[in-house]
Design a protein around this nucleic acid. Structure first.
Lengths: 233, 233
DNA sequence: AAGTGGTCTAGACCACCTT
DNA sequence: AGGTGGTCTAGACCACTTG
């Protein structure tokens, strides 16, 4: 029951957050200067600053030098999604994991793939099809392109031993990633590979990664029916 | 061209991040103590600490008192998704926004809705159907339940003037949100409302919010065909 | 029991941006 | 031009967790 004699920055954050929630600081309103809040709450400006950084990172407030701190006018809901290596994901669900290479083909990237990377010219790439299995049942279908200029080693990887997904995550770090989520209807081929009915609605995640503007890989991961992606709580 | 004589915490973060990328600090490896890194780089432990906090928040490292700092063994891809009020989203795309109330009905929450809130007993709720329009074309279909114990004011809202979505965001702050993303096939009713073919694959976002464990609202937002959710870059 | 991260304070200087 | 956030330093103490 004894409150800590000193406020931690998380305490300060919660206080400010509370005031925003209660509209003590309304939408779009300007907050007092860090220093005034510090004085009011009885802590240092440093502590208030750390709290504010967190609220800004959460998208709740906007800060500008000289401009001051404002509550964001149009509140947004921010969700964080963690996407593990597919093997880990399957094993975390308590299933046994396996994967199967469906196809590999080397060639220049077609236009839609160039678009994903924002590339003007076709690039020499490896095109991979693979299926991830959970307890021997289709779990996720991967349609992947790997840039051979950035990642020539991929040619000598033994995909019987490790999936391209996992190999890349372990050996090809990236500095930028773009993800897109959408739904597609299974066509005949996808349906056959995932063992579902044609036309079924499938959640699809498109993921493209770069290392300092150099394309690494882009993948369209098509989940089997019933797949649900949950935000971190 | 002159490097700053003093390192900022973002500089330190980038240095450490770089070492992780290059596997200087490999997957699962233990990093030196903050203080040693501080000494090596010529800055204070405070600065290193701030950098580490950021890397930890990004999911790249794990920190434990006494245990030290370790590179996360199973790298994950973390995506952040911002979901604005639907009106803002539509207007940001350059379209004119409108919405239409389809149905309202008061009654006890059925089992699936109780599950979403983790509630043991049915609750008195308002069940709303609404359609968001972009340039007069169906954009998103909402199936929403609002808890009347937590949010009785919803009964007197004029839904011709403001959508439940926007009203709630502006007047009912939440402290916890859970989101789930999945794909569904349009049934006849949904197809009719969204003006698409039955069976089409539709991205669906389920969002449930609480204010300190008190249920506020849960909504299933079904997007029209072609909808793509992109992560913040 | 001891080592490591977590945090605070106090004061200083910098840098951006609005007025 | 001046106000506000952004950051650093130096030293101190706390609290968790592992050996």
């Amino acid at each position: 029951m004894t409150p800590p004699s000193r406020l931690s920055w998380t305490d300060v954050r919660d206080v400010i957050h509370g005031r925003i929630l209660v509209r003590d600081y309304g939408l779009g309103a300007k907050l007092p200067r860090d220093e005034d809040i510090a004085q009011e709450l009885g802590c240092t400006r440093t502590t208030v600053h750390r709290a504010m950084q967190d609220l800004a990172a959460a998208g709740l407030i906007d800060r500008k030098r000289k401009g001051g701190t404002h509550v964001v006018a149009n509140p947004i809901t921010r969700a964080t999604i963690d996407i593990p290596v597919t093997r880990s994901e399957v094993e975390a669900l308590g299933h046994s994991y396996a994967h199967r290479l469906i196809s590999t083909q080397r060639g220049p990237s077609p236009a839609p793939i160039m678009v994903r990377f924002g590339a003007a010219q076709p690039r020499d790439m490896l095109h991979l099809g693979a299926l991830h299995l959970a307890d021997a049942r289709p779990y996720m279908l991967e349609d992947r392109w790997v840039d051979l200029a950035t990642c020539p080693e991929i040619l000598s990887v033994d995909f019987a031993a490790i999936s391209a997904n996992e190999w890349l995550v372990r050996h090809k770090p990236y500095t930028r990633v773009e993800m897109r989520f959408f739904a597609i209807n299974a066509d005949a081929e996808i349906a056959a590979q995932l063992g579902c009915a044609a036309g079924e609605a499938l959640l699809t995640v498109e993921r493209t990664t770069w290392l300092d503007n150099a394309p690494i890989t882009t993948v369209q991961a098509i989940a089997a029916p019933g797949y649900v992606l949950a935000s971190k709580t």
